[in-house]
Amino acid sequence: MRVLHVISEMGAGGAEALVAGMVKAGGDVGWESAVASGGGFRADALRRDGFPVFDVPVARRSPLGVARAAWATRRAVRRFRPDVVLAHNVSASLTARIAAPRRPLVTVFHGVADADVAGAVKVLRRVSDTVVTVADAAADRLEGAGLGAVVVIPNAVFPEPARTDRATVREALGTPPHVPVALCPARLEPQKRHDVLLDAWGLVPGDAELWLAGDGSLRGELEKRAERLYGVRFLGTRTDVRDLLEAADVTVLTSDWEGMPIALLESLAADRPVIASDVDGVREVLAGGGGVLVPRRSPGQTAKALRSLLYSPTARSVAAARDGGADAHTLMKSYDELLRTVAERR
């Protein structure tokens, strides 16, 4: 089965990590895979590994942008001739349907803010043959907005060993071996609420460091906010998050909303406990353990959890204990069965 993944970009985000993992693992379930996207380091890596990668400009939510993206996607469809198109999120689904009106199209809905759900449903009802969500809560939200039946396939990570040991990573960043480190692997965008995290960090005493791995439109504002705080490190976009997890002690995420964040799944796979906002997708990730849920937009409770886990190996060990969770093999099997069914029905 020939599967074309369509996604806006292939950078450091969770959806991008999922696409890269699915492309690499596709051969295990009989797929020939390709990606059409606006590029990024993950696309470059797939190209080096020999997978077809087609360049598509990001749509940018304008009629002209959508038209350009659809035209480039159409060229990719003509060259790769997929049996099914797997589009990640709403804008990619729209451009994919314009580009390939007769191809089976499955959308993977990774999540949007509550205010955007109705608009997303309006588009998906028109363009998608089947919609997959990564969490039960997201499916409930879409169905409640009138989408109809939605398939739930929980996200999973494709485990990778660390390329660099803990001491080497810390030495490269100038962090002493004994210093407690909290890692926040998230884009510096409003959804992720780094302002809440920085307010919490101001309540954490001691010599700990906070590593912010990601970039985005709020970087300047957040750097200014962090000037008065100790130990905050802006690392920018990183391609070595697995190595950073090896060197950190705790992962923290204070988002306003999430689908099912790959960053937290990667942290759990690396046996790092998580401190995260009690929002729908995160709640599902931590249902079997692996971390501490804190109320959304609560610097005080976030700081309390940070103080507990950063300075107590025992508390970290207890918090990291986990029972079950989705795995990559199950994810690929579920997608394979779904895509083959949709392709045959179409």
Rank of each mutant, 00 (worst) to 15 (best):
M1R: 10
M22A: 14
A25T: 09
V29T: 06
S33P: 03
A34H: 09
A36P: 08
A36N: 04
S37H: 09
F41H: 15
D44W: 03
S62L: 06
L64I: 12
L64H: 09
A67G: 11
T73D: 06
R75K: 11
F80G: 04
D83W: 12
S91C: 03
I98S: 04
A99E: 06
P101A: 09
V106T: 05
V106I: 11
H110C: 06
V112T: 13
A115S: 14
A115V: 14
G119Y: 05
D129H: 15
A137H: 14
A139W: 00
E143R: 15
A145V: 08
G148E: 00
V150R: 04
P154C: 05
V157I: 12
F158W: 14
P159K: 07
A162K: 03
T168V: 10
C184D: 04
A186T: 06
W201V: 12
G202D: 04
E209F: 03
E209H: 15
L210G: 13
R219Q: 13
G220L: 05
E221K: 14
K224L: 14
K224T: 15
F234R: 09
F234V: 12
A247P: 10
A247Q: 11
S255T: 10
D256A: 15
I262K: 01
A270E: 10
A270F: 04
D271I: 01
R272W: 08
I275A: 07
S277T: 13
D280H: 09
D280E: 15
G281F: 00
V282R: 02
G289W: 08
V292R: 15
P295V: 08
R296A: 14
R307Q: 14
R307L: 03
R307E: 12
A319Q: 08
D327Q: 11
K333H: 09
L339G: 01
E344K: 14
